[in-house]
Design a protein around this nucleic acid. Sequence first.
RNA 1: GGAGGGGUGGCCGAGUGGUUGAAGGCGCCGGAUUCGAAAUCCGGUUUGCGUGCAAACGUAACGCGGGUUCGAAUCCCGCCUCCUCCGCCA
Length: 440
Amino acid sequence: MLDPRAVADDPEAIQHNLRRRHADDEAFAAVDRIVALSSRRNVLVTDRDGCRAARNSLSKAIGDLFKAGKRDEAEAMKAEVATNNARIAELEAELDGLEVELRHLALSLPNVLDPSVPDGHSDADNPVVATWGTPRAFDFTPKAHVEVGEALGILDLERAAKLTGARFSVLKGLGARLERALMNFFLDLHTGTNGYTEVMVPYMVHADICEGTGQLPKFAGDMFKLAEPVNGQDTYLIPTAEVPVTNLHREEILDDAQLPVKMVCFTPCFRSEAGSAGRDVRGLIRVHQFHKVELVWLTRPEDSADAHEQLVSHAEQALQALELPYRKVLLCAGDTGFGAARCYDLEVWLPSQQAFREVSSCSNFHDFQARRMNLRYRPADVDGKKSRPQFAHTLNGSGLPLGRVLVAILENHQQADGSVVVPEVLRPYVGTDVIRPPSA
RNA sequence: GGAGGGGUGGCCGAGUGGUUGAAGGCGCCGGAUUCGAAAUCCGGUUUGCGUGCAAACGUAACGCGGGUUCGAAUCCCGCCUCCUCCGCCA
């Protein structure tokens, strides 16, 4: 969420940002409306507070008069308070409506892009920042992951469809083992030298939690909403661990010394994939349920840029350890997500598609999410003076998703005989060097 | 699911409807004392919003929401949540 005051103070800057994002007319209208509402709001607040001050002093006077036994004067004064209270009620009614609208408008605006984000319309304009590894030269035609997995008897999409239809999967034997191995490897990697604290969290969260990270109100269609409220509130299946984990410290004031908070979390992720009909229909690339190990940071504003580089490097480490060629792109203005100020995507090479496909999205949100969820910290004292609390910065990135990485392993490490070589770092977890077809 | 008891500041813990943003204690910060420290003493120690260059002033907040009242931490209603006991259960 943008600070309505910041919007009102410098609408040109916000409009410039919207142009860079190729935002729609509605967004520009929201800026104008925020400017108008903000000045009206300040008038109302000043007015209301003045009326309240009058009421407070009158009430006190009434109390004193009663004590002094001057009942008549007190009664007369009550009438005065009554008219004053009616005025307060009027002002509050207008103010309440206005503040609801202000928040709604502020929530609808995308984050301000970091100055370092390049101009551009779509993913075609994202500059490639780095590439790692060389796509393997196959002396046979590499198969797609579905073929590889089904031939190995470790992937069963047909039976998954019996359970829940398309876009679900069943892993068996070493396939399931490989998925579990990835989970453990990623968690061990990040809780080890990378210094993340592992957390386990609920997979269902209330609507305000989704608003905190930015999924709501704009992207309700991407999530699964439970038909029945849980504990009295609308509840959603989490689309990513980012949602519960980033919100862990919402409405708190963290101590400066606690930062940065670095958390790693394994969860299933549930996505409705509304509007993606016909895209990546087969296999594990685009599904309604997948597993992911997510990295989340809470930092001081001045530290978030550096944290962003570290975060993406941790995700890269995982790909490198698995010997998977990838490239790193910096998303351009038009492709950067709604809440992100700056975002790197890691794209892994898929031989069957002869293309790089997204496996990790590492974003710095600046204070966008923190403001939504009222997540603050108290900066260290300056010259012995206590500092005022301010919003933290939040970041997150996949480190990494299990399903898409499993796809990449099956495709990149497949051999002519249909077997798949297990990357060395995974062997202790999988318990074998090679996954072989049942007949072999 | 049934019965009962709680939710007050960083923590513990008072609070009769009217100088209670909130006693007292702990913790923390500053100062005094000390060669230094401990102990002791003095002072300070929530957050949001508005006005203001600032100092400051005003206003709001005692789980959340509503109500009664001139005035609510205090009375009433609903909800959330925590604890104890019974039942059920992975």
